[in-house]
């Protein structure tokens, strides 16, 4: 018998493989969304969770390059803080348990992404103008979130060391903060528009925010 699972891949090859798998997942998820009848915000959150979880796991070889931060911001913008925080928790816990490693830092990641989701909800009127996504404003929030999230997670080292280690740790990590910010910019530039079109379709019918179609009530 040949052991076909025993093929050794170089890091680049396995990354390409992961990107291919992620593309299949995203394509399949987007196709399945088309079959949904009407508005279904909770199912949309499940779709975002699948996308966030698979994206974070499969892009793991690239340092700090993952779609979770942008997804959580957009969940905050479109569905409000509570659902964004829940989404953040589900993604962080699932990915850490499955692959990335679970520990005290998971709590800090949930808090970090939770805060990112809350800020998305807080700035939702500013980012979403009459149902139109203000891409540049979303990009600005995504870049800032990259830094803030990393710093919140960095605080977890205080469980093991004293405060004096924090400054060198944060300075050393600045390059990874930049990776995270640049990754977020990429995801906003290339994914936010298609994602927002789907999310607009699945808004809460009772949501006072974001109107899916511009209302022309003035005469």
């Amino acid at each position: 018998m040949y052991d076909f699972h025993n093929i050794a891949l170089t890091p680049t090859q396995s990354l390409l493989l992961n990107v291919a798998i992620l593309s299949v997942i995203v394509f399949a998820v987007l196709r399945s969304e088309r079959r949904l009848d009407g508005s279904n915000p909770l199912l949309m959150l499940a779709i975002l969770a699948i996308f966030g979880i698979s994206g974070r796991i499969l892009l793991e070889p690239l340092p700090n390059f993952q779609p979770v931060t942008v997804i959580v911001i957009m969940a905050g913008v479109y569905y409000g803080a509570p659902r964004a925080v829940a989404l953040a928790g589900i993604i962080a816990l699932t990915t850490n348990f499955a692959v990335m490693g679970h520990g005290p830092w998971t709590l800090f990641q949930v808090l970090g992404w939770g805060l990112v989701g809350v800020s998305g909800a807080y700035f939702s009127d500013y980012i979403l103008k009459e149902g139109q996504l203000m891409l540049n404003r979303l990009a600005a929030l995504a870049i800032i979130s990259g830094f803030v999230f990393n710093w919140i997670v960095s605080l977890s080292i205080l469980l093991k060391t004293d405060v004096s280690m924090l400054a060198p740790y944060l300075i050393n990590g600045l390059l990874f903060d930049l990776y995270h910010a640049a990754g977020n910019l990429i995801f906003v530039a290339w994914l936010a528009t298609p994602l927002s079109e789907i999310m607009t379709k699945h808004l809460d019918s009772s949501s006072p925010k974001a109107v899916s179609e511009p209302v022309s009530s003035t005469l």
Binding site: M134, L135, N136, A139, L178, Y179, A182, G183, L185, I186, V188, A189, W190, T193
Partner: peptide, 15 residues
């Protein structure tokens, strides 16, 4: 917003 795509790619390459 259309400028965001090339800007994002350039930012990553520079980084």
């Amino acid at each position: 917003s259309n400028e965001l795509k090339p800007i994002s790619v350039i930012a990553v390459i520079v980084l």
